[in-house]
């Protein structure tokens, strides 16, 4: 088994009085794409936010690249090389495409080509044409590309990707899948949350299924696709 770049053990988190995660345990291996699957409100986004430090973990441990990152502020976690792409995209609408990328820029990491706007424009050609445009004027799909590109500017070793296919037209979803595979090809490990089984099947190697704040299933993507019981129980609506 390949070494885990991200190791989450017994993670608990919640909002105010509401407990949402009751001890989530999962691992992301170096170089793989893993999908965190589950229905609306299952706790996918909460898991990613708690890993990233955007939500203070109330229990459990998160290790990234050998470092204990539980409870660290998000900027420290990001600097260690864990990128985060939020579900709501959260691009800076007042800024141009180029400036959005600038906000994400971090120094290059040893032994890896640094991402530059030019390299990213090659991966996301749509963005190249609108580099000077205010991000507010972009379509949803373009904004989704931009959030991923912005996170890549930080030269991450691993990326948390929250529902990249949500609310996008089929063509764009296909481009999204290519982008994820491209990240994998660059050696970036990806943990993505997803409800769309087809999308996950197209990009992920392994899958976790979360329901009511607990991991209910773990296996290869093929195994999950084959397992009608699990799909019935936790994925179909």
């Amino acid at each position: 088994m390949a070494e885990a770049v991200l190791d989450v053990a017994g993670l608990k988190a919640g909002y105010g009085p509401a407990e949402v995660l009751f001890g989530v345990t999962l691992a992301l291996r170096r170089g793989e794409v893993a999908a965190l699957m589950g229905r609306n409100g299952a706790g996918k986004s909460t898991t990613l936010k708690a890993i990233m430090g955007l939500l203070p973990p109330r229990g459990g441990k998160v290790r990234f690249a050998g470092t204990d990152i539980t409870g660290l502020p998000p900027f420290r976690i990001a600097r260690l090389g864990l990128g985060y792409v939020p579900e709501e995209r959260r691009i800076f609408t007042d800024l141009t495409v180029f400036e959005n990328l600038e906000v994400g820029r971090r120094p290059p990491r040893a032994g890896r080509d640094a991402w530059t706007p030019e390299r990213l424009f090659a991966v996301f050609p749509n963005l190249a044409e609108m580099r000077g445009r205010r991000a507010a004027a972009m379509s949803g799909g373009e904004q989704q590309m931009l959030t991923i590109a912005r996170t890549l500017m930080g030269n991450p070793d691993a990326v948390l990707l929250d529902e990249p296919s949500e609310g996008l037209a089929p063509v764009i979803v296909e481009q999204m899948a290519e982008a994820v595979l491209r990240m994998k090809a660059e050696g970036i490990s990806v943990l993505l949350s997803e409800q769309n089984l087809d999308f996950a099947a197209a990009v992920a190697d392994r899958a976790y299924v979360i329901e009511r704040g607990e991991i209910r299933y773990e296996g290869t993507m093929e195994a999950l696709e084959a397992d009608e019981h699990v799909r019935e129980a936790y994925l179909t609506v």
Partner: peptide, 12 residues
């Protein structure tokens, strides 16, 4: 000014 939490999540 738009979203300071996101700026932090990007490593600033």
């Amino acid at each position: 000014t738009r979203d300071r939490e996101m700026v932090g999540a990007l490593g600033v």
